[in-house]
Design a protein around this nucleic acid. Sequence first.
DNA 1: TTCAACAAAACGAGCGCTCTTTTTATTATA
DNA 2: TATAATAAAAAGAGCGCTCGTTTTGTTGAA
Lengths: 195, 195
Amino acid sequence: MKEKIKNLTKEKIFNYCIKDFAKNGYSNVGIRKISKETGLSTGAIYYNFSSKEKIAWFLYDSATELVLNKIKTAIKKSTNGIEAIKSIISVLFQLTEENLHLMEYVLYVKHKDFLPGVPPICSSKPFEYIKRFIKTKIKEGVFEDMDMVIASSLIMGPIIRVIQLKMDGILKEDLNKYTEPLFNGIVKSVYRNQI
Amino acid sequence: MKEKIKNLTKEKIFNYCIKDFAKNGYSNVGIRKISKETGLSTGAIYYNFSSKEKIAWFLYDSATELVLNKIKTAIKKSTNGIEAIKSIISVLFQLTEENLHLMEYVLYVKHKDFLPGVPPICSSKPFEYIKRFIKTKIKEGVFEDMDMVIASSLIMGPIIRVIQLKMDGILKEDLNKYTEPLFNGIVKSVYRNQI
DNA sequence: TTCAACAAAACGAGCGCTCTTTTTATTATA
DNA sequence: TATAATAAAAAGAGCGCTCGTTTTGTTGAA
């Protein structure tokens, strides 16, 4: 939620760190580098964040909340369960396209290496939200009755996989072109009433 | 390929590092810790590996080769394409159960953070091998004709997702019980002749 | 004059790694 | 088989450096 950051210095740090943490890893980005690249002094950094770890927490909280909100509105706008799946794919792909670093930080970074006690990303708020959504749709009979582990893996697995291919640089194309065909495949695996 | 390591010291380092690198991250495991935990001196470590990075490379090469071999034999033993998919799932789940650290190191660790020039894991030998296999089966008409990105994501995405749930500690159960239902879901998404 | 906001030097801990010394294993010679 | 000569392996103190952090100093607005 960059728009929530009022402090200009904080925003500078946010914008730089989310890029570099995602690209080079938390341990490979020192305070001195952050200072140099943002043009801020170490004093300014430590005035705004009491530790390097706090920066990482701030990024984590901001990024997961942003993703959560995007998913929430995507699901709410959908008229039915199947439509919602397509919306989730679409919004995640869209987000990856317009803010690759943020998605890298959310999906790709091993937060537990430097954020003690952080929940694994699949237990973070956005993913828990999706899980509850899937559970509901199974109860309603929209999706086939299957183990939650299986259902969520069949749905989220392929989506995350495609995003990671993009993040790894394997995929050069715009992800949006994959929304439709991926959706078709996923639906076949979980939808009750075969199309 | 632990059985290939003749040197006892190297094996000690291998066994310890693959655990600790996977658990705490490469940067959080220093030479002194490796020395302390293995009972070896820093001299002994540097006599066997010319740098800390070389240890990581050794782990990477050994681990990916082991996975590759397991997948190769699994595919070769299978009588048809669909059977092969189940074998791949089974062998990866099996490997996760019996050597969680190794799979964590292969699938979970961000190698590019400390191994310069390493290919992303989805471009490593085991995964390239699977990709070629899928391509063949599409040409043969076993799987539906679809973009390779879509096909491999629909197949590998859910498998990797389940393994990651296990690695994150979300899944406590033996993965083998998920082989069958996951296979059924995946097949529906890519198989040509609907069952 | 006070204080928020930042600048920048300095601190101690810990890092990867090297170097010299010591121990252990291997080989050659009688 | 015993012993001297050599090589391989391991030990561990210490070096130079970078890290996250702290401390002290400066500046401009209220």
